[in-house]
């Protein structure tokens, strides 16, 4: 799949932002006044910034409000509802925490629950697609949620929690890659089933329908970036888990946490780029490509 910059930034930023907001909503830490202002400013900036970034890849963003109508079937619509509910609940919670020094537990907890539901809904956009076998499995939501709360814990200053979550995310990432590499063949689609000609012999794409490029190939058949996939996997794993964990084990000063958070963020960006670039859509079979 084509790794679109706007979608990578959206999923990473809103994931970490909602992770942080979830901790703040649960009162971990139960900040008030200026401290609350800065914490929530960072959380809202990441979450809302990510959501705004996601509209950049739309063909007609002026109609985005219509996306709230189909929550019965569509995960994208549900994501819209969850995120708006989370932001409203936490907006009220933040308002009272900043200006009145009060932590409204009900709004905080509701906001935290809907923050995590938003991240889950984002992950389900990808998990639901049978056409992309690497995504269509339980590891996708687990990875999204783990990285969201790991980043949130880091930004909220819960060092030990962040340490455990980053180790868990690193281990889970390796499992995801090992299982993910087998998903396409397990799903059972091949050029024979795609064309229905597989029983007659070996099928080979002889001639494509057109000599140029098209939307399908640009969007869903991304072969270019994969040659560096192995190196990028190591970079992603080292930056999002190994190095931040080592930094935090050595020092737990504010600077150490900041450095760990920045490296973790870069690692997650690389991880998310790979998440798209390595995902193979079955439509590629029609073009003899993966």
């Amino acid at each position: 799949m084509h790794p679109a910059g706007s979608v990578i930034i959206f999923t990473v930023a809103s994931g970490i932002g909602f992770g942080l907001l979830a901790f703040l909503g649960l009162g971990l830490p139960a900040v008030q006044g200026w401290a609350a202002f800065w914490y929530f400013a960072v959380g809202f900036a990441l979450a809302v910034g990510g959501l705004v970034s996601s509209t950049f890849h739309l063909g007609n963003p002026q109609r985005a409000l219509k996306a709230f109508t189909q929550w019965r079937t569509s995960w994208l619509s549900r994501e819209g509802w969850f995120s708006v509910t989370a932001l409203i609940c936490l907006g009220i919670y933040a308002l009272f925490a900043v200006f009145f020094g009060r932590n409204l537990v009900v709004f905080g907890v509701l906001g935290a629950v809907f923050s995590l539901l938003t991240v889950f809904a984002t992950s389900m956009l990808y998990t639901q697609l049978k056409t992309v076998p690497r995504w269509n499995t339980w590891t996708t939501p687990v990875m999204f949620i783990l990285l969201s709360i790991a980043g949130g814990a880091l930004l909220a200053g819960h060092v030990w929690f962040a340490l455990i979550l980053m180790i868990a995310a690193g281990v889970m990432q390796v499992i995801t890659w090992v299982l993910g590499d087998k998903r396409f063949s397990q799903a059972g689609s091949n050029i024979g089933s795609a064309t229905g000609l597989g029983e007659r012999g070996d099928v080979r794409a002889f001639e494509p329908p057109h000599t140029g490029n098209n939307y399908l190939l640009k969007e869903m058949v991304h072969e270019v970036g994969r040659k560096h996939a192995m190196k990028l996997r190591v970079i992603a794993l080292v930056l999002m888990a190994v190095v931040p964990v080592l930094i935090l084990l050595v020092s737990q000063s504010v600077f150490a946490i900041a450095a760990a958070a920045i490296l973790h963020l870069i690692g997650v960006l690389a991880q998310r780029w790979l998440f798209f670039a390595e995902a193979e859509h079955v439509v590629g079979l029609y073009y003899g490509k993966r």
Binding site: G59, N60, R63, K66, L129, T131, S189, M220, V283
Partner: peptide, 16 residues
């Protein structure tokens, strides 16, 4: 008139 051009339906289609 209601399509926002998010492209998710094209991703969901196995046939392109």
């Amino acid at each position: 008139d209601a399509c926002i051009g998010c492209g998710l339906c094209a991703w969901a289609c196995p046939y392109g």
